[in-house]
Simulated assay, not measured.
Amino acid sequence: MSVQRPTEDSLIARFFAPIAGEGALGLMDDAARLTPKPGHDLVLTVDALVEGVHFLPDDAPGSIARKALGVNVSDLAAKGADPSGFLLSLALPAHWTESWLADFAAGLGEASREFACPLLGGDTVKARGALTLSVTAVGEVPSGLMVRRTTARVGDAICVTGTIGDGALGLKLRSAPDWAEALSHDDKAHLADRYLHPQPRHRLAGALRDHASAAMDVSDGLAGDLAKMMRSGGVSALVEAGWVPLSPAARKAVQASPPLLDVAFTGGDDYEILCTVPEKNLDSFRKEADRVGVALSVIGRVVAGDGLPVFRMKDLERRYDVGSYQHF
């Protein structure tokens, strides 16, 4: 006996219209309307998420929704842009259920309110394979003030927000490794949450515009993303590995299995801000980060050269040649 599916129009009206923003026009039209503030540029970013690549089939639908929006808002934040809204394309596999979609929409609505990034429109289609979704996020930045990744300068301090490595370790926990026995229940919950629920640092956007010389978000691993940033600016970096911020849970994991430090530095799924800041701006930047409740750590300096960044570990120096995550 076949299951009667709701129509595309009824899906939109039931699940997505209630969480849409003003510019979405009730999702009753073929396009949304967005008017940027006078004197502002639009900043646009897009990320696609595929089941089995960016999330696992048993991840909660609300978590998938939050990640889909969060990774895009993280990109906007790194450019110094304040979110304006987003478009969603959702390709549902044959086995989708209305309860799954209700939970997905609820998680999406919660994330959009938290990030001040309303739904403006999108498209819902049937997939012939895995669940696939794509978010295009739009932000605004005062004209000419978007923070680029290519403009780091020799002598700048290298800073990161939050902690590094939690997301990658949270993913590894899913396979029940031996080192997990050294972690408490709360430690495991912390790492799992950091993998499932990115925390974009959108509240830091204004401070980045005012103080940073270059910025990007850490999505594909600190070592690889730092190498991208330095290479694009024609410079290199010296990082004090002991200054890279690790959460208490990540530190316990590394103590139990020291090779996990490499996983923390290269594994990705951090969605923290990596930026370079001129020395004269550093104190003001720290104060602004503290004011908006975002932890900030200086981990090294931009140096002249064209080689891979050096991670200094006591008496040793390490260059990570694995790069960052690549799809192809």
Rank of each mutant, 00 (worst) to 15 (best):
V3A: 13
A17P: 03
P18T: 10
G21K: 10
D30T: 15
D41L: 07
V43C: 08
T45L: 02
A48H: 01
V50E: 06
V50K: 09
G52T: 10
H54F: 00
I64W: 08
A65N: 08
A68D: 03
L87I: 13
L90V: 04
L90M: 09
W100V: 01
R113I: 05
A116H: 15
G121K: 13
K126D: 06
S134F: 07
T136I: 12
V138G: 03
G139K: 10
E140D: 08
V154W: 03
T163E: 06
G167N: 00
L171V: 03
P177W: 01
E181M: 03
L191I: 09
L191Q: 00
A192F: 12
H197P: 01
P200V: 01
L208P: 08
D210S: 13
K228R: 10
M229L: 15
A237F: 01
L238G: 09
A250K: 00
Q255W: 10
A256M: 09
L260R: 02
F265H: 10
G267R: 00
D269F: 00
I273F: 13
C275T: 10
E288N: 12
V292P: 10
L296E: 03
P309R: 02
V310E: 12
L316N: 07
R319G: 05
Y325Q: 00
H327Q: 14
